[in-house]
């Protein structure tokens, strides 16, 4: 059967649809495993602290990227922190998004942490979100040892 003019489109050339779909299993490593274990079993957020620069990494690292030194000191950081920035994702990308849009994302500097944690924001209307506001982690009831065991961060009312 001949190639139809519809298939050729207005460019006169064919498009050849395909997809790459491969299974992956990533290793979380020692630090990542402990991070998720603490969240899953105790609803606690832990980081690692560099012995030289004192930076507290959340998620935890085994090597300080700044000093390139091994880190073995673990510190618990707060489950509350300050919102450094945020956005509301309003477009849909099937397959990669944790929720139907719109959904809010922010970077939260947890109390006692050096790094900010990128995560979801919840229990708040988009127009009420402010940079600098205090937020607190809400953990899932059923936790599986992954990033979304923290359901989201909600506003912390003083």
């Amino acid at each position: 059967m001949a190639v139809s003019s519809e298939e050729l489109g207005n460019t006169g050339t064919l498009k050849y649809p395909s997809r790459i779909r491969l299974p992956y299993t990533w290793h979380a490593g020692k630090a990542g495993s402990r991070f998720y274990q603490e969240i899953k079993d105790h609803c606690k957020i832990w980081g690692t602290k560099c012995p030289r620069c004192g930076w507290v990494y959340v998620p935890p690292r085994e090597t300080c990227p700044r000093c390139f030194l091994d880190i073995d000191e673990w510190v618990e950081v707060g489950d509350a922190g300050t919102l450094l920035t945020y956005t509301i994702t309003r477009y849909s990308v099937p397959g990669i998004q944790p929720h139907e849009p719109p959904y809010a994302l922010g970077i939260i500097k947890l109390d006692g942490a050096g790094s900010g944690l990128v995560h979801l924001l919840g229990e708040i209307e988009p127009e009420d979100i402010r940079v600098g506001m205090r937020v607190q982690a809400v953990f899932r009831e059923v936790r599986e040892g992954n990033y979304l065991d923290i359901k989201y961060f909600k506003p912390l009312r003083s």
């Binding site: 490593g29 990542g32 990669i96 944790p98 994302l105 990128v118 995560h119």
Partner: peptide
């Protein structure tokens, strides 16, 4: 893939 990817960033 172990951390932020699941946020749909």
């Amino acid at each position: 893939p172990v951390y932020e990817r699941s946020l749909g960033l």
